[in-house]
Amino acid sequence: MSMQESSGVALWRQVADGIERGIADGRFPAGEKLPGEMEIAETYRVNRHTVRRAIAALAERGLVRAERGS
């Protein structure tokens, strides 16, 4: 899945939205770990730091819990 910056939506937001959809549709079940940053970055074809920003935004909203080293 390739992200498009030309859509007017920041790349980190597009990644966060994709992860949120995955949570909603059951691809990422509650209580289970998300794939690692590098795997998510490869899936969305973005930089790992973009993934970090997306995860941070989801954590701020209480949708995920970010644990250092996990």
Rank of each mutant, 00 (worst) to 15 (best):
A10S: 07
M3F: 06
K33F: 08
P35K: 01
W12P: 15
G69P: 15
G69A: 05
R45W: 00
T43C: 10
Q4F: 03
L11E: 05
Q4G: 10
F28C: 03
G69L: 08
I55G: 07
I40L: 10
V51I: 09
R27H: 04
R27M: 01
R27S: 05
G36V: 07
A56Q: 14
V51L: 01
I19R: 03
A10Q: 06
S7E: 05
G62C: 06
L11N: 04
N47H: 14
S70R: 15
P35N: 00
G8Q: 09
A56M: 07
R48W: 02
M1K: 12
A66N: 13
S7F: 03
V51S: 04
G36E: 08
R21A: 11
E20C: 05
D25V: 11
S7C: 10
A16C: 10
E20A: 14
S7P: 11
K33R: 08
A66K: 12
I40M: 01
A66Y: 07
R45T: 05
S70P: 14
A30K: 15
A57M: 06
V46A: 00
F28L: 11
E37C: 07
R27Y: 02
A16L: 08
R45D: 08
G26N: 03
R68C: 07
G8M: 06
P29V: 01
A41V: 04
G8F: 00
A41W: 00
E42L: 09
N47P: 11
G31L: 02
S2G: 13
R48V: 06
G26A: 01
G31P: 11
G22H: 06
A57D: 14
M1V: 09
A16V: 02
P35D: 04
R68G: 11
P29G: 04
A56H: 14
V9K: 08
N47A: 10
S7D: 12
A54Q: 07
R61D: 10
D17H: 13
S6T: 12
N47I: 01
L58T: 03
A30L: 09
A16K: 11
Q14H: 08
M38R: 15
R65Y: 06
T43E: 12
S2R: 15
L58C: 05
K33S: 07
T43F: 12
R52W: 05
I23Y: 02
K33D: 10
V51M: 05
E39D: 12
M38W: 10
N47W: 04
W12S: 13
R13C: 02
P29S: 04
A56N: 14
G31T: 02
Q4A: 03
L34Y: 02
R21H: 14
R13K: 15
S7A: 10
A56C: 05
R48Y: 03
A24T: 09
R68H: 09
L34E: 00
R68L: 12
A66E: 10
W12L: 00
E42A: 12
V9G: 09
A66P: 12
I23S: 02
W12M: 03
I23D: 03
G36L: 07
G31N: 02
Q4S: 14
L63H: 09
R65G: 14
V51H: 03
A59G: 13
